[in-house]
Design a protein around this nucleic acid. Structure first.
Length: 421
RNA sequence: GUGGGUGUAGCUCAGGUGGUUAGAGCGCAAGGUUGUGGCCCUUGAGGUCGGGGGUUCAAGUCCCCUCACUCACCCCA
């Protein structure tokens, strides 16, 4: 029986895995520098957690979660995103104290049952970060500057940062109502989806891609114009800080987020090279979520970035070269018998060394050594064995020297460290 | 969930109007040097032509179904 992988998931093969390692190591470094520490949370939670945080009415919860019952009949779901779990963990462990800030990051697979598409998989990897305990607008700007720096370090070209503010519980309801009234009047010009959204989630109509809908909502009231004084001041401060730091951005008053918990600052980092799935990173403030999930009132902000999307944007030349190994080429059975112990001693000294296990010809072994980028090849044949030496070939200069078997490990350790290999 | 495109060796792809043993390049393996890499040359391995059904004397090629991939809608990182 031929077994295949599940639809919408993919293997990250050895040729490509460097991209994930690179993204992980660079972002980990930056986030640590910004004062974030890692938290590792479960891949599944009670379904209710996601329903209450992301929003019962959202598509993610309504039809995209991998939900199942365990043997006790509890409804569990594979996480469709990371923020809910992080918030839950912080509440569970009572880590959210008044007047203190905590900064956490996470990474790992998320699961959503969507139709697979370019940059959209059913198991996909995200890196995310959250700041709890302050609504200081400088922190919003700090998060954005961190993303800006991250993309710079990764060498990702052609991205733009869009920001918006969705207001708070004081000012958003009024805006929502005003927008709804406007949309009802324009209803004739809207697509069927947008007519439905007018009732369920009017803000999303602003995000519709259809030209007709865009046209019809040209004159729609702007969120930004309806912000209360505090939200307005907050948004102005974020923009000012970004300006002072030289982080380029665009204000997009139609930028709306899909998850219900967002308040005030929201943002997306868009790429011009990804087709329809063009959001590489996105996030925003969610000042009400912690309390809503049963924690103390705690303002918070965070983001998540999609690793697959980022990986496709990485310039190929980013590929880092790994340390050039030593290749041990035995010839004949007597020589091959000496190999295991020799390998062990070399590796115990921290030397990267590889060998042939198939008893191939020297020519084959040389080819193989060349392919794996070996710096040196140690040839051990009958002649060498009887002389008690190993013939050490420098693959770059082609120079060959006889090294006594006795001191081989020490000598090669010195030779290879001397070249920073 | 809805539409469009595509499915031939590990990879990238050729295979007019259906007609004998299905091809190339790259990659892989062996050899060209009695024990020596990159270039070059030779040879070789590797394919139920996504799967199933149908039309036909004959199907990789036509028809139907199905699955997968892909792009867009939708949704979103």
């Amino acid at each position: 029986m031929k077994i295949s992988s599940v639809r919408g998931v993919k293997d990250i093969l050895p040729e490509e895995v460097w991209k994930w390692q690179f993204i992980e190591s660079v972002s980990q470094r930056i986030m640590e520098d910004y004062g974030f520490t890692e938290i590792r949370i479960p891949v599944f939670e009670y379904t209710e957690l996601f329903a209450r945080s992301i929003g019962q009415e959202t598509d993610i919860v309504e039809k995209e979660m991998y939900t199942f019952q365990d043997s006790k009949g509890e409804s569990l779901s594979l996480r469709p995103e990371g923020t809910a779990g992080v918030v839950r963990a912080c509440i569970s462990h009572r880590r959210l104290q008044p007047d203190s800030v905590s900064k956490l990051y996470y990474s790992g697979p998320m699961f959503r049952h969507e139709r697979p598409q370019k940059g959209r998989y059913r198991q996909f990897y995200q890196i995310g970060a959250e700041v709890f305990g302050t609504d200081n607008p400088w922190v919003d700007a700090e998060i954005l500057s961190m993303l800006h720096l991250l993309f710079q370090r990764l060498g990702i070209p052609g991205t733009t940062l869009q920001i918006n503010s969705l207001g708070c519980t004081d000012c958003r309801p009024a805006y929502r109502k005003a927008l709804q009234e406007f949309l009802v009047q324009e209803e004739a010009a809207l697509c069927t989806d947008c007519r439905r959204r007018t009732q369920t989630n009017p803000l999303r109509v602003l995000d519709c891609k259809r030209p007709d809908c865009k046209e019809a909502t040209q004159g729609a009231p702007s969120v930004l114009a309806s912000l209360c004084r505090d939200c307005m001041a907050h948004f102005e401060a974020v923009k000012e800080a970004l300006g002072l730091m030289g982080v380029p951005y665009e204000v997009n008053a139609r930028l709306v987020r899909g998850l219900d918990y967002y308040t005030r600052t929201t943002f997306e980092l868009l790429s011009d090279q990804l087709g329809a799935q063009n959001a590489v990173a996105a996030g925003g403030r969610y000042d009400g979520l912690v309390e809503q999930l049963g924690g103390p009132p705690t303002p918070a902000i965070g983001f998540a970035l999609g690793m697959e999307r980022l990986a496709t944007l990485l310039p190929e030349e980013t590929n880092h070269s790994r340390a050039k190994p030593l290749y041990l080429a035995p010839l004949g059975e007597a020589a091959m018998e000496r190999v295991p112990v020799l390998l062990h001693k070399l590796r115990a000294r921290g030397i990267a060394v590889q060998t042939d296990y198939l008893g191939k010809s020297l020519k084959s072994q040389m080819r193989q050594a060349d392919r794996m980028g070996a710096a040196y090849v140690g040839i051990l044949g009958e002649d060498e064995l009887s002389d008690g030496v190993i013939l050490l070939r420098n693959m770059e200069t082609k120079a060959q020297t006889k090294v006594p078997l006795e001191g081989f490990v020490d000598q090669i350790a010195e030779t290879m460290s001397g070249e920073g290999a």
